[in-house]
Design a protein around this nucleic acid. Sequence first.
DNA 1: CCGCATTTGCAATACGTTTGCAAATACGGT
DNA 2: ACCGTATTTGCAAACGTATTGCAAATGCGG
Lengths: 139, 139
Amino acid sequence: MSTTTKASQDIRAAGLRVTPARLATLQLLRAASSPMTHADVANHLRSIGVDKATAFRNLNDMTDAGLLRRTELGDHVYRFEKIGPGDAAANSHPHFLCTVCGAVSCLQDIRLTAESLRESSKIGQVAEILLRGRCNDCK
Amino acid sequence: MSTTTKASQDIRAAGLRVTPARLATLQLLRAASSPMTHADVANHLRSIGVDKATAFRNLNDMTDAGLLRRTELGDHVYRFEKIGPGDAAANSHPHFLCTVCGAVSCLQDIRLTAESLRESSKIGQVAEILLRGRCNDCK
DNA sequence: CCGCATTTGCAATACGTTTGCAAATACGGT
DNA sequence: ACCGTATTTGCAAACGTATTGCAAATGCGG
């Protein structure tokens, strides 16, 4: 089955109508290796005549529908990423944001030390971990 | 020495003029137990006739001068906190943001497992750690 | 107390995000 | 294949946070 057909089915299964803008959005993000900002997405979709408001609505709608995840990496812009086959809709993975160039990396295996986990559980239940710093390309 | 005198001296030593707005800002943040948003600060200072633009400028200026630290916790609002006596100006500590109520906690002892550190160093040098989740008051 | 550079208030602006509304469109039913 | 209707779109305007221009006010070294 083509990725387009798969995307169509997934959109429909999520309870949303299949429109060119949604199809393009989902395929774009499924092809991306790291989260994309709304500006990134809107920019790509402008070539097929999609308005930025529509891009925003679709990103948010598809997030609500469980097709995407919206991440906030502390630079005052929302980013969106596909929810991978293995991911539960609710479970995020850690991200690394380079505060110099803005590059975003998805991490899989980041964990806190047992002691830190205990310490942080006094505060609450950790759902998300974000690391910021300087990436290896910005030395 | 009073905290007011201390604050005055610190502001002057940082190369900034001592104004009522700056004095109030620094004392407010030094009395706070967790980072405050610009809106929080501006709100407190409005009672003494300080404009929000002035509040912003002072927060940023005092951050540049090394008196405060500006943190971004991923909710699209800047927060400011005092730089404690023990803190190096550059070194931040981890924060926990409750995504339900917005409460912010400062953490001291959070560390990554050795393996995670190794993994993240492939990406870059981690300068800041941010945890998000649900705090114990929002069960 | 003077003079001047810094700081302030106010209004206007920038930017990311959201919303109102009428026109366009997807799609289940026929 | 077509209709009817609820959903979705485009456009513009509104929103909230953060920033800036500029003239008036003020801190502070002399």
